[in-house]
Design a binder for these strands. Structure first.
Length: 259
DNA sequence: ATGACCTCCGAAGGAGGA
């Protein structure tokens, strides 16, 4: 089973590009972030025509996440537990049915800039809630994948110009520590497990010729439970998509599970 | 070069992204 995560930066503004990638890459499951629309404005029919089921947790203008799956989606949950009162649509989770069911989450972790503001505190609090939820899921000892835009640069090697990111919320010690804490629960970072070569970026800013200069960062990640890690057979980053017409500033991260 | 982009909303330019 091929699972992808992709921050599409508006699913409606990007629909042609997104569908082009779906037809080329043929994901079984795709976790989308920054759909930037309410549920009713999500172009579900376009995906259904390609044989997909859709579950959406949308929001007007900002954020918004979705799951798109060829297999039926069961036990859909919108929002992180502990999110009561949080208006920002950043989390959706469902069980992808099949002979070996896999729980999959689409995550849009807060950016957190500028550091020292309530936005950074919100990012860290959100990561704490994600940590608590991951602990609950781990207790089930089942395959699950937490996939998405984590807005965290884990290590200096995950940026072409790490000095550029000093002082940025994506590269703060607190952000990196919270990401490590997630992994230290027993989750495996799929890219490092199955490949791990440096320079594998997933984001290049639209500004200042970042793509042309390869001023990239690796901030989209797939964290796997031990039972999902057992099933991991491969990973790829679809870097070329950043060079397409009307690209998102993120590219898809794809993992293969023997499920 | 203290630059440079993109989307949303809504009808100009501010907010937000990373």
């Amino acid at each position: 089973m091929r699972l992808a995560t992709w921050n599409v930066n508006s699913v409606n503004a990007r629909l042609e590009t997104v569908l082009r990638w779906f037809e080329a890459a043929q994901p079984d499951v795709a976790c989308l972030q920054e759909i930037k629309c309410v549920d009713e404005k999500f172009p579900a029919e376009a995906f259904e025509r390609l044989g997909y089921n859709v579950a959406v947790h949308g929001q007007k203008t900002y954020n918004g996440v979705a799951l798109v799956s060829k297999r039926p989606l069961e036990d859909v949950r919108r929002g992180l537990p502990g999110d009561d009162g949080d208006e920002q649509a950043r989390y959706i989770e469902a069980v992808v049915s099949g002979p070996q069911p896999v729980r999959v989450a689409s995550i849009y972790l807060p950016n957190g800039n500028p550091v020292g503001t309530e936005k950074f505190a919100y990012k860290l609090a959100w990561m704490d809630r994600l940590n608590a939820h991951a602990r609950e899921l781990l207790a089930w000892e089942e395959p699950f994948a937490l996939m998405g835009d984590y807005n965290v640069i884990p290590e200096p090697r995950d940026a072409e110009f790490p000095k550029n990111w000093e002082g940025d919320a994506l590269f703060q010690p607190e952000s990196r520590r919270a990401f490590r804490a997630l992994k230290n629960l027993g989750l495996t970072e799929a890219y490092l497990q199955a490949d791990g070569a440096p320079g594998a970026y997933t984001f290049w800013d639209y500004q200042a010729g970042a793509w042309q200069r390869n001023n990239g960062i690796r901030i989209d990640h797939a964290l796997l439970s031990p039972e999902a890690t057992d099933l991991l057979t491969g990973v790829s980053i679809h870097r070329d998509v950043r060079g397409w017409d009307k690209p998102s500033d993120h590219v898809p991260l794809v993992i293969e599970l023997d499920a």
